[in-house]
Each structure stands twice: as C-alpha cells, then as structure tokens.
C-alpha cells in the first residue's frame, strides 16, 4: 500500500532531471572554452566572457527554479520524458549504433553499398523484420538513385567503394 502511494506520488511530480542535461553540458563546455582562452589577448577574450557569463547566469536561474520546485515537492530529478517511452529505448540505441556504423563503414564500402546496407538494416529494425522483399527493393532503388544524383550528377567526391569503382570501370 505504501509502495503504491509512493508510486502515485512519483507519477504526480514533474520529472525535471532531463531538463538539466543540456544546461550541464553547456556549463561544462563554457568552462572548457574559458580554459582555452586564458592565454589569448584580452580583446579576444571579452566577447566570449560576455556571452559565457550570461549563459552561466541563465543556467543558474534555471537551477534555482528547478531547485525551488523540487523543494516544494512538485518536481523531482528523475530523467522522465527523455527516456519515455521506455519500450523504444532498445530500438533507438540500435538505430544510433547503425548510424554510427554508417559513418564508420562508408569510408571502405563507399556511398552506394553503405546506404543500401544501412537502409535495409534500419528499416528491418524499425519494422520488426517485416516486408523483407519490399525493404530490400526500396533500399536498392534509393541507394542507386542516390548514386546517380550525388555522384554521377552532382559529382560529389564521396568515398568510393567497390560499387563505385566497378561502375567507373564499366562506364
């Protein structure tokens, strides 16, 4: 019973922990930035200090506002909305890993093959493995269309892989 009451109480409160992520990142970055300008001539420091100090002041105001809400019992510091809905966390992390893989492997596989592989895997991931044939067809059309638009038409110097090298030899 007590546990139920605690859970209801938690659900009623605003979860403001997530709201502090960006300000904390901004605060740490600003301090790092200040550190990198210690030896710079004074004139070049002033504008950064001007903007940085205003930013720190604003972060301070937000911290005070959140602190007052937590003290008043209307909010807590759980992450809340940023991780909700929890059922999507694995998919989101997997999509992030695939995106990172896209950037890493494009250097060796080249544009067309990497886009095809990424599109196929990401669509299968998000669609829970359904419509495999359709997914591969869409990924094939889009990656080849992208090759024609970006590499053939716009002459973008994107990393060339086996597919681009083969096409260059053929045509």
């Amino acid at each position: 019973m007590t546990e139920n009451n605690e859970n209801t109480d938690k659900a009623d409160k605003n979860s403001l922990g997530g709201d502090l992520i960006l300000p904390i990142a901004a605060f740490i970055f600003t301090l790092y930035y200040f550190y990198t300008i210690i030896d710079v001539p004074r004139i070049a420091q002033i504008s950064a200090f001007f903007v940085g100090i205003i930013l720190i002041f604003l972060i301070g105001l937000l911290a005070i506002r959140i602190g007052r809400e937590v003290k008043a019992g209307t909010a807590d510091l759980r992450l809340g909305g940023i991780i909700e809905p929890r059922s999507f966390i694995p998919k989101r992390l997997a999509l992030l890993a695939l995106t990172l893989g896209f950037i890493i492997f494009v250097q060796w596989l080249g544009f067309t093959l990497t886009v095809f592989t990424f599109l196929s895997l990401a669509m299968l991931l998000l669609g829970n493995g359904r419509n495999k044939g359709f997914v591969f067809a869409i990924a094939g059309i889009l990656s080849f269309g992208g090759y024609l638009l970006f590499i053939v038409a716009f002459k973008t110097r994107f990393p060339a892989g086996p597919f681009e090298q083969l096409m260059e030899r053929l045509f």
Binding site: V115, F118, A122
Partner: peptide, 9 residues
Amino acid sequence: PIIISFTLV
C-alpha cells in the same frame, strides 16, 4: 532511415 542516410550525406 531515409532521412538519416541522405541528410548525413
């Protein structure tokens, strides 16, 4: 996936 791959390009 289309948005991610083509905008990263």
